[in-house]
């Protein structure tokens, strides 16, 4: 475990916490007759969270962590896997089933079809993999799918006029997690013998590049001290 890897995992964890915090805030706002301004913003506007992206992440973790009960790596590894599995499925559950959270979800804007991402990723995993076994193909599929799973969220951000702070932080933290993983691979390549993983690296690089545009607008909004807004 190196510092880049740990920092990457921590920003990933923080992104999940930001999303759970947002859901918690939406929930707790509901019963108030005179909501605070944050509640007002969260309840009156759409949450800006893409259910499509969250469902894809749930699928990513479910297919990647099939080894959770068969191969033991470390306590840290197992706990983190359980957190990512549990949080991704509960976020999906909240957006689909929770009375109040569901109301803040803007279904009409979040129109991307899972099918267009899942099918090509599955085909690619069947063709390009390190070993043609059930577990290995699904593991490779999860890498390909994770690379593109953010697309519905990025498209939704572009469509939504007001990106509230938490949604912006969420996407930023996810992007930071990916960038840190690249540094982790570079570090491991130079410090560990035979550490070469083209499939992981290329899909990870593609994933990080998808955030480039968002990062550009995120940092310029910070620099100019204005609200984050993506161009149409």
């Amino acid at each position: 475990m190196n510092i880049f890897r740990l920092a990457g995992d921590m920003t990933h964890l923080m992104s999940v916490l930001v999303l759970l915090l947002k859901i918690h805030t939406i929930k707790s706002c509901a019963g108030k007759s005179y909501p605070c301004s944050l509640c007002f913003i969260l309840l009156e506007s759409s949450s800006g969270i893409s259910l499509k992206t969250q469902e894809l992440y749930a699928l990513v973790f479910a297919t990647r962590y099939l080894d959770i009960f068969t191969d033991f790596i470390s306590v840290y590894n197992t706990i983190m896997k359980l957190i990512f599995l549990g949080s991704s499925f509960s976020i999906v559950w909240y957006i689909r089933r929770h009375k109040i959270v569901r109301r803040s979800y803007d279904k009409d804007q979040d129109t991307f079809r899972h099918f267009f991402l899942v099918l090509p990723c599955l085909l690619l995993a069947l063709i390009i993999n390190e070993k043609f076994t059930f577990k290995e193909v699904l593991w490779t599929f999860s890498l390909y799918l994770e690379a593109v799973a953010i697309l519905p969220q990025l498209i939704l951000l572009q469509r939504t006029r007001n990106i509230d702070n938490l949604t912006g932080q969420y996407v930023f933290l996810l992007g930071a997690y990916r960038a840190l993983y690249i540094l982790n691979w570079i570090y491991r390549y130079f410090t560990e013998p035979h550490y070469v993983h083209w499939i992981t690296w290329i899909s990870g690089l593609v994933q990080t590049l998808l955030y480039a545009d968002f990062f550009y607008y995120y940092f310029s909004s910070l620099k100019n001290n204005v609200k984050l807004k993506l161009p149409a």
């Binding site: 995992d9 983190m80 390190e130 070993k131 577990k135 593991w139 993983h197 992981t200």
Partner: peptide, 10 residues
């Protein structure tokens, strides 16, 4: 597995 060492990543 061929990718055993990368499997310790999340």
């Amino acid at each position: 597995s061929a990718s055993a060492d990368v499997k310790d990543e999340l």
